[in-house]
Simulated scan of single mutants.
Amino acid sequence: MIDLRSDTVTRPSPAMQQAMFEAPLGDDVFGDDPSVNGLQQQACELLGFEAALFAPSGTMTNLIALMSHCQRGDEAIVGQQWHTYKWEAGGMAVLGSIQPQPLVHQPDGSLALHDILAAIKPDDPHFARTRLVVIENTTGGQVLSLDYMQQVQQLCKAQSLACHIDGARIFNAAVAIASQQQQDPYQVARQLVAGFDSISVCLSKGLGAPVGSLLLGSHEFIAKARRIRKMLGGGMRQAGVLAAAGSYALAHNVQRLAEDHQHAQVLAAGFNEAVAQHQLQAEFSCHPVQTNILFCDLSPKLADFLRQQFTEQGILCTAGSYQSADGQRCRLRFVTHLDVSLAQIQQVVAVSQQVLAHYARNNTRNNARDNSAVL
Rank of each mutant, 00 (worst) to 15 (best):
D184G: 05
Q265H: 12
A282W: 13
A176D: 02
R237H: 14
A173V: 12
Y186P: 03
A174T: 08
H278A: 06
K224I: 09
N272Q: 15
A258C: 11
G270V: 05
L250P: 02
Y248Q: 04
Q191L: 12
A282C: 13
R256H: 10
L250E: 01
E220K: 15
P210N: 01
S247W: 07
G270I: 07
L207P: 02
A189D: 03
M231R: 15
A258L: 13
A269I: 10
G246S: 06
L242V: 08
M236N: 09
V193Q: 04
R237S: 13
C202E: 04
G206C: 00
A249G: 01
L215P: 00
A173E: 09
Q262N: 12
I228D: 00
E259Y: 14
E220L: 06
A189F: 08
D184V: 10
L215N: 02
H252Y: 13
A274P: 02
V266N: 15
A176P: 02
A176Q: 11
L203K: 02
Q255G: 08
A178V: 10
R256G: 09
L267D: 07
S247P: 05
Q183C: 10
A244V: 07
C202H: 06
A251R: 15
H278P: 00
E220A: 15
V175T: 13
V254T: 03
Q180R: 13
K230F: 11
I228M: 08
M231A: 15
A174K: 10
A249M: 04
V266R: 15
D260S: 15
A244N: 02
M236C: 09
Q238V: 12
S179P: 06
Q187E: 12
A189T: 03
G246T: 04
A209G: 00
M236Q: 13
Q262R: 14
V188T: 08
G208K: 00
I177K: 10
G217S: 07
H263Q: 14
L280I: 08
